[in-house]
Design a protein around this nucleic acid. Sequence first.
DNA 1: AGAGTACCAGACAGACCGGTATACTCACCG
DNA 2: CGGTGAGTATACCGGTCTGTCTGGTACTCT
Lengths: 193, 193
Amino acid sequence: MSGSARERLLEAASDLFYHEGITTTGIDRVIARAQVAKASLYNNFASKDDLVTAYLEVELARVEQVLAALPRDTVGGATLALFDDLAAAAQRPDFVGCPFLNAAVELGGDAPARRVIDAFVARLAGFFLEDLAGDGARATQLLVCYQGAMAAQRLTPGSSLVRAARDMAHKIVEAARARTTSPTVTSAPTPVR
Amino acid sequence: MSGSARERLLEAASDLFYHEGITTTGIDRVIARAQVAKASLYNNFASKDDLVTAYLEVELARVEQVLAALPRDTVGGATLALFDDLAAAAQRPDFVGCPFLNAAVELGGDAPARRVIDAFVARLAGFFLEDLAGDGARATQLLVCYQGAMAAQRLTPGSSLVRAARDMAHKIVEAARARTTSPTVTSAPTPVR
DNA sequence: AGAGTACCAGACAGACCGGTATACTCACCG
DNA sequence: CGGTGAGTATACCGGTCTGTCTGGTACTCT
């Protein structure tokens, strides 16, 4: 037991919301895990929706950290490392896919946390686009691969599909590198939305 | 109002579970929509879990129908048609992604309906494998594309990612066709699990 | 005519939900 | 020393959830 009530609440909420699901995790379970009084929760967060939003903001910050730590020596190098990390993470038994995809499915289209979900996708799309030096078509393909891997983790946990998505990503990066060396432009950049 | 109570219940459950979500849709909403007494529900289904399972079985039968109606003139032809259908369906406003992916996320790993979800993925994997004449590696890639499109529909509804997934699938089919004409075998078949 | 069946309407139980209110402790700080 | 703010514990609120039960109705088959 360490840190302020708010920190303990966020830690407990992250763990429970991610592994057990958002809607199935009640407020009481969160405060019991955090060893915090119920009033302390509502002193720090306006509602459960607010706690969920804060949870996703923590996850987004974690993503930002991962992206920042990636090597950027060559075109697509960070992308390769990201998919390698992903394939490695999928081996861990407590990995249950992408928290943002899970939240998007659980919460529906009109939740306040949507803002954070949208920000995550925009960040990821921007990352691929930047790492591929503006090759929008292939950045979009990488986004499909990433989301396919995350969906596969829920649909068929333990399958080799995450690794297959990584292999596809590697091929796409190779193709993007070939494009930058040879001047053949295959298609115009496609924005995410 | 037509058909038996069971049929009306399944119809109402399909509509509500798919569009509003499984956990957020209560029994009362289902029986109100079906114009059926609560006792009739529990005469036809043992529990809500049982109704959910039946709902997914209906969806699986629907998938089976779609697959059966696909043209099988050439290698990968049915796959192309399937992804074209998917891209077209994604345009409709009531399309909220794959019912099996949504259910997998909502229900968690230990629900009775898991059986149907697994059957769906196995069916889809078998379909791609058969349509690509045994090219397991590319069939797996198609599975990643499909699931990526379904995930994208939840994460960024209205985006062009479903169309991007379709384009990727077209490329994969083309590559598979090139393999069958030229005898270069690139990799061994990879099972889904 | 009578039995059986399928159905309807709705009350009810017991658990759980998010959220509020009350009353108390304790550490810090001017 | 006295006040202030953060935290604790717990009772409670209205509402919703799944699931059961009672009682009554309509139709069909023999």
